[in-house]
Amino acid sequence: MAAIEELFKSTEMLYEALDKTVKRELRDDQIQDIMSLLDKRDESMKKIQTSLSSQESRLMKKIIEQDKIILPLLVKVKAGIQQDIQNVRKTKSSAVKYVNPYQNRTADGMFYDKRK
């Protein structure tokens, strides 16, 4: 029963970590917390045996219900991270174009003299 209770507690803590809104400056800490809680959950899941008592089955049902809520929150965090990566890439390319605007010249406007 200890493994199920441990899984339930770590699931609740994961939900609480995902549910609170965090400023961008503190998001790295939030991501570290989420990763450690996911690792705890993984370890707890490995300890669970296949035969469950009625009380353990009820806890498992609660865990499954919470997982349905947690998954969209994890997707939301992932989307935020991906958006930040895209913004950094866009800023980086804009900075390069600003520093050296003639680096990527096109062939438009060239004149070829075909007379002999």
Score class of each variant (00 low, 15 high):
V88T: 14
M13E: 11
N104Y: 04
A107I: 15
L73M: 07
M110F: 08
L37P: 02
S10H: 08
E5L: 10
E16H: 09
K47H: 05
L38H: 06
T21P: 11
R27M: 05
G80T: 01
K116C: 02
I85E: 02
K68I: 07
L18Y: 06
S57R: 15
D67H: 02
I34P: 00
L73I: 11
R58L: 04
G109R: 03
K20T: 07
K9I: 08
L26Y: 15
P72V: 04
V96Q: 04
T21V: 08
A17W: 09
K40V: 09
I34R: 01
T91S: 11
T21N: 13
S10Y: 10
S93C: 09
I48E: 00
F8G: 00
V77F: 03
A79I: 12
Q30L: 06
L18Q: 02
M1T: 07
I34T: 04
G109P: 00
R115C: 02
E56C: 02
Q32A: 15
R89A: 05
S54C: 06
K90T: 10
Q49K: 14
E25I: 13
E43D: 10
K61N: 13
L73E: 01
D33C: 15
A107G: 11
N100Q: 11
S10M: 03
D42P: 10
L7S: 00
L37E: 04
Q83E: 03
D67C: 12
E43S: 13
I48G: 00
M45F: 12
Q86F: 14
S44D: 05
L7E: 00
S36E: 06
M110A: 14
F111C: 07
Q82I: 14
E56A: 04
K47Y: 03
T11A: 01
K9V: 05
Q103P: 04
V88Q: 09
A95K: 11
L52C: 05
E65A: 09
Y98M: 08
I64D: 05
S94D: 09
Q55W: 06
V88R: 08
P101Q: 00
E6V: 13
V77A: 04
L59A: 08
M1F: 07
Q49M: 07
L52P: 00
S10C: 12
R58E: 05
V75T: 11
Q30V: 03
M13P: 01
K61D: 04
M1P: 10
M13Y: 12
K97D: 08
K97R: 12
Q55R: 14
S36W: 10
Q103A: 10
M60P: 01
M60L: 05
